Amino acid sequence: MKLKPIRLLFDANSMVMRTGRTHLSGIGRTALELARALDELNDPAVDIRLLTQTFRGHIPESFRNLAVRNIPWPIGPRYDWLKQRFPLLETLAPYDLLYEPSNFAPLHRPDKTVVTIHDAMFFSYPESFLGHDGPRQHAPAFAQRARAIATPSKASKADIVKYMGVDEDKVTVIPWGVDRGIFNANDKLGAKERVARATGCDRRWFVAVSCDIGRKNTISVLRAFKAALAEGIEHDLLLVWGNPPADYLQEFAAEVESGRIRFLKHVDDTLLGDLYAGATASWFPSRYEGFGLPVLESLACGTPVVTCRNSSLAEVGGEAAIYVEPDGIDEMAELMREFDASQPAGAHGPQACLGQAAKFRWDDTAKAYLALFKAAAE
């Protein structure tokens, strides 16, 4: 007797490119990559439908095998309580299992949900300006009621078990992959030329992405670069940061004015890949990460990455990454001077970087999720 496929509803709201946006969030990017990989596998045992709730905007992708269902229903606290009290999704889009890629969600049936909890940052490294009060309040109860939990690193699993009161057997570690169509070492010379045309940078450069004023710790990179620049290095520093704060712009006004520090806005995926591929090194001295995609993206481009050995970062960087302390500004400045003198080789050279990145593949991620969906549906 042939079994009916599992009806899996995939919450794709994080994948919607809203009007006025130029790129997806980190959660949106990983959700989109997972959907692409699931679409390629096309497992007949799991019937996957992508669910969106949008009046404007679209998923920036078309799929051969995954259907997309849009229910134009407002998103936000004013409306979320309705989905919790009434079986709206169950009525409008019946399913056997719901996949929620965004840490938690207001749902009527969490017990029919597989959720990806990317990290427990709102407990282990809370930042009030990012609105972490809400997740601290709601995520543990949701995690406890969910059918199964996936997370991208062992470090995140340990934090989820510690802070959310769930059994470790309920949490499955499934690392993310990397989009090798964007992040690769196929044309490093061309990448340098394209970045020069796009940014006006005519020197070698260091790159930092995923910049912010908090745990990403971009200020340490800026101060290390200023110190190395005073010693005469010939690199520029390119930061993918659309809205650096005014006090940073004031502190580094001379370097910005001279073009040695450049803040880049509206960077699309093609330019982002080129920024990594053409750089001498990338810098990501974050204080906490649930996975650390910038580390993997840099490695996939064959570009050395300087990061920290906290949280999940060493799981991703392996022996190929170069590790510093988050506040090790003198150490970072010394590394910049060393990079300025010669390209890294050996344990941190391009081949080592590519070898570490090869361990992370989206098709492996999708296969592991399919196995989790099937187990959760039993």
Rank of each mutant, 00 (worst) to 15 (best):
D11Q: 15
M15C: 10
G20I: 02
T22Q: 12
E33D: 06
D39N: 11
R49V: 05
G57V: 03
I59Y: 02
P72T: 04
W73H: 13
R78F: 03
R85G: 07
P87Q: 10
L89G: 04
L92T: 05
Y95N: 09
Y95C: 05
E100R: 12
S102E: 02
F104S: 10
L107E: 01
L107A: 07
H108P: 05
T113C: 15
V115L: 05
H118P: 00
H118W: 08
F122E: 11
Y125W: 12
Y125Q: 13
P126D: 09
G131R: 10
G131D: 09
D133W: 11
R136P: 02
A139P: 04
P140R: 03
A141V: 02
A148H: 11
S153F: 03
A155K: 14
A158H: 08
A158Y: 09
D159R: 14
V171N: 12
P175G: 14
V178F: 07
D179T: 12
K188H: 06
K192D: 00
E193A: 14
D202S: 13
I213V: 06
G214P: 02
G214A: 09
K216Q: 05
K216L: 04
F252W: 07
L271H: 14
S282N: 11
F284E: 01
E289S: 08
G292L: 04
L296Y: 08
L299K: 10
L299Y: 08
R309S: 09
E315R: 15
E319V: 01
V324R: 09
D327F: 00
I329W: 01
E334F: 00
L335R: 05
F339V: 04
H348Y: 05
G349Q: 14
C353Y: 10
A358V: 04
K367V: 01
Y369F: 11
L372P: 04
L372I: 05
A376G: 09
